[in-house]
Amino acid sequence: MSENRNADSGETTTGHVWDDDLADYTNQPPRWWMIGLAVSAIWVVVYFVMYPSIPIATSGTFTPGIGLPGSGQWTAIKEMEADQKDVDDVRGKFEKKLKDMAPAAILADKELSEYVSRSGKVLFSDNCAACHGQNGIGTTDKQGLFAPILNDDDWLFGGTVDQIYESIANGRQGMMMAHKSSLNDEEIKALAGAVSQGNPTATPLFTEKGCVGCHGADGKGMQAMGSANLADKVWRFAGTPEGIKYTIAHGVNDPGDKETRVAIMPNFTAAGKLSAVEMKKLAVYVFRFGGGKAADPAPAAQ
């Protein structure tokens, strides 16, 4: 380099001058800084050699690197799989037990039922919540409740954990004929009035017109066939006289009436979407919403 010097101090400069007298000294960077630079450069090389570093666009792969001493060649996928294994190991010991247990036995086991309450949440949200609502609060359409609330203690087909399992595994479909042709408006109105009061037997029509055949002499329904309890405070569709009139007139799942109420619980075994363990989990999960009924004879405390 040619000898450029600062006129005043005599220090060597780069020779670039701005604003008449402003120049760059040719000082070395500090020693510590140079050491840092060298170490960083070496580190880059080491890192480059050890880790996957060059993506190969044509083959969709990468140079794998020589790997880390003791732990092999690192990839993000392997790390993710290892993390996943940690989770699976924690779940594994529970899942293994669930396989051979009946829903009632799972419910009786405090630890397992706590586990199911947590892992069942995802299953419920994915498979059930569309109709039954998040946390089983039910959903409504313009004709009333679309799918039953699962939090209460009123069950069309039974509320023991085994019955709930059965409802999930095999589906449920009740049937009520449309009565608009067999009953006149006055009769429908009288029946709806009595039912909405929670006292269906108040009108003699309840017996005369054959309602007792399905809903029982006391109007409390029969779980074996899924007929609703008309004497309690929980309504499957709507509890207003108008809503009840609609149900009587058009029935439920009556293929002969286009306006009939639809109430079909799909068969999840046939759908093939859920495994037996998953359905067991859901049965316990739903039971624990708060409305589950103890089986006879009563199982161990939950």
Binding site: I137, N151, D152, K233, V234, G290
Partner: peptide, 18 residues
């Protein structure tokens, strides 16, 4: 307290909280 649902109406007409 459970937030969803805040309460449940049971078949005997009582209100249950979780």
């Amino acid at each position: 307290p459970e937030r969803q649902p805040l309460f449940v109406r049971m078949s005997d007409g009582s209100i249950q909280n979780k």
